[in-house]
């Protein structure tokens, strides 16, 4: 039996709540506190790659279909670095690398059409009120099955969708009405860029390098970051609102979300450390009665 198997086979069900909390925190601290430089490199390399696609396609160095494939990957890869920054994982306020944390967030979130602070405020509310039908801004990603989740994601990006109201309500509850105005500015700027490109003869480039890749990326992100770890059937509560699950496309294909339970319990742990933290925490999670598929 390997060391990790021995560790996950330990029975901790007899420990008190205080003892479980102490053990869980020890493991979380062991896997946090470092600057995830890989994520920082990922954020800026991804941004530069996507920006480079535009001249490369305009100058016909690469064909539009190839630009579309790469752009879809780029925009699908935007959210995770901003997500790390939303949780101050790259640098906490008052620390040396806080400026870099904020730079990563602001420099990349616009590709996903949202101001960084909007993503942060709404996402932190998702953590605070996970699966609450009235207060979780991401509740509209819940669905009964995978195909339904894809359809729901598309439906919730329609102009009159419930999610629009949920996000506005979240920002209003957080007394951040200023962010509603900023979101509007971002959205108008996005439309302005698309329209300007279209009327100067580059509508197909705008469509295949930004509009369609964003739609694919938003569906993909909603599916793996929200639907898969939170529904169907997940409840409210620290050890009940998400789970460990086995993805058919693996941990990389599901953007590391198989171990989403670790992120919800300790959102300051970098994404790349959540698998190791999970395997160490597993006996504690078993003792807590969490839903675990691995």
């Amino acid at each position: 039996m390997s060391a990790s198997q021995q560790m996950t086979a330990v029975d901790l069900t007899g420990l008190s709540n205080a003892e479980l909390v102490r053990l869980e925190r020890q493991i979380a601290q062991k896997h946090s506190g470092m600057v995830p430089w890989g994520i920082v490199a990922w954020a800026f390399a991804n941004l530069l790659c996507w920006l480079a696609l535009w001249p490369l396609v305009f100058l016909e160095v690469i064909p539009l279909w190839l630009g579309f494939v790469i752009a879809s990957l780029n925009i699908s890869l935007v959210y995770l670095p901003t997500h790390e920054a939303q949780h101050h994982i790259i640098g906490r306020p008052g620390t040396r690398w806080h400026w870099l944390n904020e730079l990563v967030g602001h420099a990349t979130s616009w590709m996903f059409l949202y101001p960084f602070e909007v993503l942060r405020v709404t996402h932190l509310d998702h953590h605070r009120f996970s699966n609450n039908p009235d207060l979780d801004p991401d509740i509209t990603n819940h669905a009964d099955g995978p195909l339904s989740a894809i359809w729901v994601s598309i439906q919730q990006r329609q102009p009159g969708a419930k999610r629009v109201g949920d996000y506005l309500g979240c920002l209003a509850r957080s007394k951040r009405e200023d962010l509603i105005r900023l979101t509007l500015v971002y959205r108008l700027a996005y439309f302005g860029i698309l329209i300007a490109l279209a009327w100067t003869g580059h509508a197909l480039e705008a469509f295949f390098l930004w509009w369609l890749p964003y739609q694919i990326a938003a569906t993909y992100t909603n599916f793996f970051l929200s639907y898969a770890p939170h529904s169907p059937g997940m409840q409210e509560g620290r050890y009940r609102d998400t789970k460990n699950w086995r993805s058919k496309v693996g941990n990389i294909g599901s953007m590391g979300m198989q171990f989403h339970i670790v992120h919800h319990l300790h959102p300051y742990i970098p994404l790349t450390r959540t698998p190791a933290a999970y395997w160490e925490m597993r006996p504690i999670l078993v003792a807590r009665g969490c839903k675990l598929e691995m």
Binding site: R187, A198, W199, A203
Partner: peptide, 16 residues
């Protein structure tokens, strides 16, 4: 906004 998007973006997109 959908009307603006339809005239401003979709129209030239379909034409191109």
């Amino acid at each position: 906004l959908p009307l603006v998007f339809g005239i401003g973006f979709l129209a030239p997109l379909f034409a191109q």
